[in-house]
């Protein structure tokens, strides 16, 4: 019974948290701009609508194009099983943090290949940008993980991101948090790195790679992207937010996710997007922060 309840709450979070979190971000942005904004559940309605649609495939594409959305969603779901979403993770072992990072890389690899498969110059441009920027975001992620793993004594997410855990000094925790937050914004194509709402193909990074996907494929991609955001935000939340007794671990995680969504919404409302050539500078800054954090931990 306990196991069943655990799996049920895990599934609920994996299915519902992504659209709700995106909904809260949009609502926050609307509120800051003085608008009413779409309902919080709008992203969920959009996903359901897309799932009910047919898909159109270009004749120039191959199976690689159809593989992209499925594998990228599967990779993110697999990564979700490693993250302690409902108190504990589904699967945990020493070294799962590395698997976590590389499942994200796998998802990116198939998305990029699917984009290149279309032969469109836009999507090629987006693919090149995505790969260039993630080659800088990845070191930041791994370095921040390394500091946390050293402290935890084990390379597993559940120990590294234990509540009340943190690093051995406030400074190293803040540095790791800061770099992980930048990685979160970059990985999830948020402002200041990318603009998830733009319709301008030439400036997009992530969105331009999925222009040719429609229907259920697009629903997979959108849900996968949302889930990625939930996972990364969830880890950060566990690192800083102590478990609240009246809410239970899943409840405090959800509360933390909502707070993270508001924070992301505020960041997006308070600044303009970076010029594309400046994005690497931001990511290198994240790498530096993570490295200093690691040095402080090792000291």
């Amino acid at each position: 019974m306990e196991t069943l309840k655990f799996i049920a709450s895990y599934l609920t979070i994996v299915l519902l948290a992504p659209p709700v979190m995106l909904g809260i971000i949009n609502k926050t942005k609307a509120a800051v701009a003085g608008r009413k904004g779409p309902p919080v559940l709008q992203p969920l309605h959009d996903t359901i609508k897309l799932l009910g649609k047919g898909a159109v495939y270009s004749e120039t594409t191959t199976w690689m194009f159809r593989l992209g959305p499925v594998v990228s969603l599967a990779a993110v779901i697999a990564a979700a099983s490693l993250v302690p979403l409902a108190g504990a993770p589904l699967v945990s072992f020493n070294g799962d943090a590395i698997l976590f990072a590389y499942l994200f890389a796998l998802g990116r690899f198939v998305t990029v290949t699917a984009a290149l498969d279309t032969g469109s110059s836009f999507e090629g441009m987006g693919a090149s940008r995505e790969v260039a920027f993630s080659s800088l975001a990845e070191p930041a992620l791994i370095l921040a993980f390394a500091g946390l793993a050293y402290r935890a004594g084990e390379f597993s997410l559940v120990r590294m991101f234990a509540p009340h855990g943190g690093l051995n000094s406030a400074a190293s925790t803040i540095l790791a948090l800061g770099s992980l937050f930048v990685v979160l914004l970059a990985e999830n194509s948020r402002i200041p790195v990318d603009d998830p709402n733009t319709h301008l193909e030439l400036t997009m990074i992530h969105e331009v790679m999925v222009l040719d996907h429609g229907g259920p494929d697009l629903a997979f991609i959108l849900h996968g992207a949302g889930l990625k955001l939930v996972l990364m935000a969830g880890l950060l939340v566990r690192l800083i937010l102590p478990e609240l007794p009246m809410l239970g671990s899943a409840g405090s995680l959800l509360l933390g996710l909502a707070a993270a969504a508001v924070l992301i919404g505020l960041v997006e409302s308070s600044m303009a997007r970076l010029r594309l050539v400046r994005v690497p500078q931001l990511l290198v800054a994240a790498i530096c922060a993570a490295t200093f954090g690691l040095i402080l931990t090792l000291r």
């Binding site: 800051v32 701009a33 409302s269 997007r273």
Partner: peptide, 16 residues
């Protein structure tokens, strides 16, 4: 212009 650079508050106010 504000919309194109993703600076939303000014977009909304100028638009109104």
């Amino acid at each position: 212009i504000s919309n194109d650079i993703g600076y939303l508050p000014a977009t909304a106010y100028f638009g109104r």
